[in-house]
């Protein structure tokens, strides 16, 4: 019974891959390889090292961008949520960032920061940060009033109220924001490699497409999705370990 969720995940993956295999065999398009072809391309890329070299390249802007977005995003979100002035100052920036069509901004970023790592990190940040900031700020603002009052009544300092009450209370929504932000960051990293300079995984995708090596192209796409899913699962585990009682909602429910 404990592993029912796990079994369901496996079953749904099998159905998806089965459908992929069938669609590839029909084939729905000449540019659509079967699942097995893609997997063998993936293994050969892994075996000859291209895949690892590509990830060494791609992970740089991704990891740096996500780390900046998470740390800075949560910090700014806390600030914005706790203080009306910073709300007024910062909220519009992140709302605009979230709404702006990023692909259209990339030429501007390249103009300002060149085609190096800086631009790519910025693309990841622009994708990942707004939702982290806005979620954190919203969650902080919605901390149940009676919990904060309880903190004050039992002589908690302002800092202790933030650390011991506001952040744990906001953590489910902060983590939801992190999940959304990090998946957007993955999109940003690949987008940067497709739009700025083809490096890493983006290069595999572009190059394989240009020489009609579709199995390799799909293998690269599949691998990045797999990485994102694994990473999000890890994040979920972290949350469960950190805030055990939060899983079942609040006392006042």
């Amino acid at each position: 019974m404990v592993n029912r969720a796990f079994v369901l995940k496996i079953v749904s993956a099998l159905i998806l891959f089965g459908a992929w295999e069938i669609a590839g065999r029909i084939p729905v398009s000449l540019a659509f390889p079967t699942f097995l072809e893609s997997m063998s391309a993936l293994f050969s890329m892994a075996a000859d090292g291209t895949l690892w070299l590509a990830y060494a390249e791609t992970l740089q802007p991704l990891v740096v961008g996500i780390a900046i977005s998470a740390v800075l995003g949560i910090a700014i979100g806390l600030w914005v949520g706790l203080n009306d002035f910073f709300d007024w100052l910062f909220s519009p920036i992140f709302i605009v960032m979230q709404a702006a069509p990023l692909a259209a901004l990339i030429p501007l970023l390249v103009l300002a920061y060149g085609i190096g790592l800086t631009s790519k990190v910025l693309v990841v940040c622009i994708m990942a940060m707004p939702v982290i900031v806005l979620n954190t700020a919203g969650a902080v603002r919605n901390t149940p009033e009676s919990m904060k009052e309880m903190g004050r009544a039992y002589l908690a300092t302002d800092l202790a109220i933030v650390l011991k009450i506001v952040i744990p209370a906001a953590s489910p929504v902060i983590f939801a924001g992190l999940r959304l932000g990090i998946s957007a960051g993955f999109i940003g990293a690949i987008l940067a490699e497709l739009k700025i300079t083809p490096t890493g995984v983006g290069d595999i995708i572009t190059y394989s497409r240009s020489i009609a090596d579709y199995p390799s192209m799909y293998a690269a796409i599949f691998s990045i999705i797999l990485l994102a899913v694994l990473f999000l699962n890890l994040l979920e585990k972290t949350e469960t370990v950190l805030f055990k009682g939060n899983q079942r909602g609040y006392v006042s429910d």
């Binding site: 039992y154 009450i165 209370a169």
Partner: peptide, 18 residues
Amino acid sequence: PGPDRAFVFQDFALLPWA
């Protein structure tokens, strides 16, 4: 608020993660 007073809340105000 001071150490000479303690408060019992209508909605309990417990920390759900603790």
